[in-house]
Amino acid sequence: MGTSAIACEGLCKRFGKATALGGLDLAVPEGAVYGLLGPNGAGKTTAVRVLATLLRPDSGHARVAGFDVARQAAQVRARIGLAGQNAAVDEILSGRQNLVMFGRLYHLPIGAARRRADELLAQFALTEAAGEPVRQYSGGMRRRLDLAASFIVAPRVLFLDEPTAGLDPHGRNEVWQTIRTLAGGGTTVLLTTQYLDEADQLADAIAVIAAGRVVAEGTPGDLKSLAGGDRIDVVLRDAGDLVPAARLLQARFRADVRLDNDSRELSVPVTGRLATLTEIIRSLQDENITAEDITVRRPTLDEAFLYLTGQQPPSSGTAAPAPASPSSLPR
């Protein structure tokens, strides 16, 4: 115990004047599925590229599977798998040919490479399409093949850089399922994503990064609590009541009320759940404002993200219903 599969301290990387990593610290325990969450340009991909020995950091240290990424790159490479933002497989070759080729490059004897390819094709539900050229595969199938290729030697640490970028919801579910299976086998997974629901679905722990540094770290639950406790959402019957009701509640609770015109919804951060709920209902009744629906809920990861990075989440994915374009209250 106490060993980290991935440990880095003060990683810095600049490209010209742009800072991609501004002192990144991470400690990912053995066997964890760790989410690196941040918007485009936050440094997620650069972090993965440094940890996967593709890029040398300007300063700082990183150890992966116990080896230094800069000085012991060969040892690190023998113990990692990498699936980048594109499905990095050969489109002209068949799925099986791809896996046999990658197996050979991991120096498996030809017989073992073939057996391993067939095992992986079965494990990733690609046996039927094994002989087809990859360019005929769907997006989800390509990603699964890509994951299979990164899993040939059952790596100690698997890097997945936005593994579902560009996939439709069906393809994304397929890939999520595959990642859960891989993680179940004890491999440490470092996953980058800009989809909040993806981190929520897959990761045991999340680091939110912005400008190449960790701005918050914890379980998905911890991060939601950081966003400022529970919220009460009120859906009004009349869109015209939205602004008066928001002003009323803002004055009443001295809280930052957010409103959404499309769904006629107000969102109020609260501390005492039931007491606040009854007060909201009473205040609205006093002003003859009719509420259609009232819900008490934990904050979403979107709200945590907004709070932590001070910017809009770039995308909330498709699986989790995110609040649609919340705007600040006009004053």
Partner: peptide, 13 residues
């Protein structure tokens, strides 16, 4: 461009 070269570079080749 398609990341295949990076995959090779991340392997013990």
């Amino acid at each position: 461009a398609r990341g295949i070269t990076d995959r090779f570079r991340s392997m013990p080749m």
